[in-house]
Amino acid sequence: MSFKRFWVMFVARNKEFFRDSSALGWNFLFPFLIVVGFGVIFGGKEYNEFKVGVFPSDTEIVIVEKLSIPKAFRQTRLIQFIGVKTLSEGVEKLRHHAIDFLIKADSPTNDYWVSDTSPKGYLVEKLFHASLYSEPPPAQKQEIRAVPIRYVEWLFPGVLGMNIMFGALWGVGYIIVRYRKIGVLKRLKATPLTAFEYLSAQLLSRIVLMMFMVIVVWIGCDAIFHFKVEGSYGNIVLVFFLGSLSMCAMGLMLAARGTSEEFSSGLINFISWPMMFLSEVWFSLEGSPQWVKTVADFFPLIHLTRSVRKIMNDGAGLMNLMPEITAMLLTTAIFLALAAVLFSWNE
């Protein structure tokens, strides 16, 4: 191992990355745009769980205070009231689950309609019945004051992790296959450069660039959304480093052999898409079948997103993150070992 040879390859790779300004811009812009986009979509709007149709009404938008339906029902939170012209129109909407519940205004007998197959309709019906009693039945209330975790706050670590995954698999894996195909690796093989020096330079260069991307995008998004971080920033940087390491090692393993760009892009897609969907980038796997969770545990990305969320949202320390950290280190070791055994400069 010659540090000098490692270093010149590391520097050369960084130059390549930073001088390719279109690719560079995209690497920073992509996660930023996704987070900002989703923040706008889910951030400001009030969240309504149930939709209740009220007829007769000429307009779809109704002024809730002026509806002549039981007051307690009108004031229930999490219900969105929607005006409907006629009974038949309302029933049609019920049938198509466009609304969960239909009620007639100015009805002394409190007439309502509900679909017998709609679970939400069933719950609204219970709410409606309860609102008809003036006295609440006796029950002891204990309230917890939860600091709400906004969806962007939950989403953000996932999007950064996803960007690292794509960056690692394409930026390390695909590039090496391409370089093997067009003969760059052959030229390097003819020098004293060893495979270890070359590959570790590729790996570290990518990790450094990704950490830089994480920090820049984090600062940019934080300026807009003011993320609440319960745990330590140092730990966040550490787990991002471990996650990048593991995913770059995976890229190296996938690129250990082969000269077909088509095959390698197919392979990368085949791995990255399930990895993205099973790694809780967009939605939680809570409630999925056990086998799905087991499969997901083999992907480094899920351990990265989980540990960043635990630090950010729950203030977890490194001790609480042992399972995730172990998983990331273990996958790194396995991928690197396989990459080392399989690597070829020109086959």
Binding site: V8, R13, E16, Y179, G183, V184, R187, T191
Partner: peptide, 21 residues
């Protein structure tokens, strides 16, 4: 037939290869 690392100048390419020896 061969290719070189992209986004390096001729001089940088020579320096890079020189440092490998």
């Amino acid at each position: 037939k061969t290719e070189l690392l992209s986004w390096l100048t001729i001089e940088e390419t020579l320096k890079t290869f020189q440092s490998l020896y």
